[in-house]
């Protein structure tokens, strides 16, 4: 990240809690799933910001809440300085042109009964572009950008392979000339051979069109290849944010460290030492007290069981949320083996 870069998106204390209904009539809110619970980060113009973490930690919910596909429970989302959380529906609709999303499952996310050209064009119609000539011009332009031929545009989704369907999804996202694309696991359903085609395409488009990406993935080697800065999520919170090489060389948060060590080795003779975490990810409806990672943390101290750490910049644009790096933590005692 260079100094001149401008902040394109700023997310501040974002929360999304889902009510869990119960009771005899299923109408009482028993508890809340804290899917996203106080997430803050910035995305610079032209960069790729990665979000990683295990299943259920809130990556997709973060992405959808930024787009207001889900209403935030709390928090602010500034896009080019304007607070999206305060926009009404029509204001938001205008802004949607600038922020688009590409989904994980290329099989489920395309309407099987629509022709490819109608799928790609649909956003323009939603944004009120009534000029058919103009729509067609854009259609052919984006089709060319993602490598679809004009003949393919009159066909239906089932005639396409996974990689091709993902190209269609990307074309659809590009047609409104967005500035920011949120890509939620765009290559997770694809074989490595096809995955690399799609990643190369996304990189070309970024250069050509000056796009900014938020790239959500659970695949740590893909994220390392593709992103500039990375945020690591655990149970609805960002626990560490750093530039990619810093994070992979020197993770600071014990969870980030364990997560990165779990990455399979790239070669049979280079087996690594792994940190094997105990237990499973706890339920986000009933997160542990204090630091939510404490029951699985080998460095857990007394203070971790009661006080929640906050995300703080500790070194050169490297932010971490852990008592090992706070004043209070330095005076606490080791709590022994994690349970």
């Amino acid at each position: 990240m260079t100094k001149e870069q401008k902040v394109l998106l700023k997310v501040e204390n974002l929360k999304k809690h889902f009510p869990v209904k119960g009771g005899i009539f299923g109408n009482k809110t028993l508890q809340h799933v804290k899917a996203v619970d106080g997430v803050s980060f910035e995305v610079m113009e032209g960069e790729t910001f990665g979000i990683v973490g295990e299943s259920g930690c809130g990556k997709s919910t973060t992405g959808r809440t930024i787009l207001r596909l889900l209403e935030p429970t709390e928090g602010n989302i500034y896009f080019q300085g304007r607070n999206l959380a305060e926009l009404n529906n029509s204001g938001m609709r205008k802004l949607r042109k600038d922020i688009q999303i590409v989904f994980q499952d290329p099989f489920a996310s395309l309407n099987p009964r629509m022709k490819i050209q109608d799928i790609i064009e649909e956003p323009l119609i939603n944004f009120g572009v009534t000029d058919r000539k103009e729509r067609e011009r854009r259609l052919l332009e984006v089709a060319d950008q993602v490598g679809l031929t004009p003949a393919q545009l009159t066909r239906f989704p089932h005639e396409f392979s996974g990689g091709q369907r993902q190209r269609i999804g990307i074309a659809r996202a590009l047609i409104s000339k967005p500035k920011l694309i949120i890509a939620d696991e765009p290559v997770s359903a694809l074989d490595v051979s096809i995955q690399s085609q799609v990643l190369n395409l996304m990189r070309d488009l970024q250069k050509e069109l000056g796009l900014t990406y938020i790239f959500i993935s659970h695949d740590l080697s893909v994220v390392k290849h593709f992103c500039d800065r990375i945020g690591v999520m655990y149970l609805g919170k960002m626990v560490e944010i750093a530039e990619k090489s810093r994070l992979y060389d020197k993770p600071m948060h014990p969870y980030a460290e364990a997560l990165l060590s779990a990455l399979p080795s790239p070669h049979p003779l280079k087996k690594k030492k792994r940190i094997i975490l105990k237990g499973d990810v706890p339920s986000p409806s009933n997160p542990p007290s204090g630091c939510t990672f404490h029951p699985r943390c080998a460095s857990c101290m007394d203070i971790c069981k009661t006080d929640q750490p906050t995300l703080q910049v500790v070194e050169d644009q490297h932010a971490v949320s852990c008592h090992l790096y706070t004043e209070a933590g330095k005076h606490s005692f080791a709590a022994g083996e994690p349970v």
């Binding site: 490595v192 096809i194 690399s196 190369n200 990189r203 390392k224 290849h225 593709f226 790239p266």
Partner: peptide, 21 residues
């Protein structure tokens, strides 16, 4: 297949891929 893998140790701007399916 091996060339398509992102290499965690060496950074390349583009990955190689296998055309077709």
């Amino acid at each position: 297949l091996i060339a398509s893998l992102p290499d965690v140790e060496e950074q390349r701007e583009y990955l190689s891929s296998i055309p077709g399916v």
